[in-house]
Amino acid sequence: MPIDAAKAIAAEPRTGEISWTPKDVQLYHLGIGAGARPDIAGPATDPDELRYTLESRLHVLPSFATVAGAGSPGVISSLSMPGIEVDLARVLHGGQSLTVHRPVPVAGTATATGRIAAVYDKGKAAVLVMRTEVADADGPLWTNDAQIFVRGEGGWGGDRGPSARLEPPAGDPDKVVERPVREDQALLYRLSGDLNPLHADPEFAKIAGFDRPILHGLCTYGITLKAVVDTLLGGDVTRVRSYVTRFAGVVFPGETLRIRMWRQEGRVRVEVGAVERGDAPVLADTIVEHT
């Protein structure tokens, strides 16, 4: 079997140094659509967007943690860890959770430790939980968990794992915004480190079962967090404490995201759909916890 769950979990963690600069932060922000607010009349670049794009005002959207240091150890590199040997064309990002221990600095050097935290048997697929813990000289910075679906690799009788499904939010959303996705959004976003050809190569996308390249799930993840911060958290990135989502469907470059938000005590529930496909679910079971 290409996935040996016991061997994968028992493997020694991979540890390495990562670093990032303001330019990396700016590139990430541009990759998730920063620099323009289509819902605000006025200049093409809204002044509030300068906190994401201008070095003298720069602050860091916490979801940058998913690509800092080019996402090291990285989902693709983690697929070659002991006990794991899979076909990249069978791999889909199923979910993501991020816990921020303190605000992400504009520039930094840190140690990233990555390991397989769990392997679940979903019958027709295996789910790998890839955990990355990052700390610098002052202590922990963030913890990332990526849930990776590997199609066709389940069915060995292992633990199915917890369910990520939540009860739907009650009532009408407190806020609804729409965010267009550029036709070249995936090509721009991949420059932050996720070079999976699924997001750029039409032939590879067909092999993976799509008629054209799809947007990175983590790009949608970043676009959504930015919308929540800008809309309900007063633009203050330091208020975010954690952010979890389930990738419920794909986004194609050129589509529009409809982001629905419900205020709850200490958190925001979020659902995201693709407008052009009848609000087809894109992100579900999504929670941003904040101060």
Rank of each mutant, 00 (worst) to 15 (best):
C219H: 01
F210W: 13
N196S: 11
D201S: 13
R182H: 06
T220K: 01
G171Q: 03
V176G: 06
L225A: 08
I214L: 11
R190F: 07
A205C: 12
I214T: 04
A227L: 02
L198S: 04
A170E: 15
K175T: 10
E183D: 13
A200T: 15
R182K: 13
V176Q: 10
L188S: 14
P173L: 09
P213G: 08
E178N: 13
K175R: 15
G222H: 00
V181T: 02
E178L: 08
D172W: 05
N196Y: 02
D211F: 10
R182Q: 07
G171M: 12
I207P: 02
Y221W: 14
L218G: 05
G209K: 12
D201A: 12
Y221H: 13
D201M: 13
I207L: 15
A170H: 09
G217S: 06
R182C: 00
F204L: 03
T224W: 01
P213S: 11
F210E: 10
N196T: 04
R190E: 08
A205R: 02
P213H: 05
C219G: 00
R212T: 12
H216W: 07
D194R: 04
L215S: 05
G217C: 09
E203W: 10
K175W: 03
F210K: 10
D201Q: 14
L191F: 11
P197W: 03
P213T: 06
L187A: 15
R212Y: 13
C219N: 03
R179C: 02
P173I: 05
D172P: 05
L187M: 12
F210P: 08
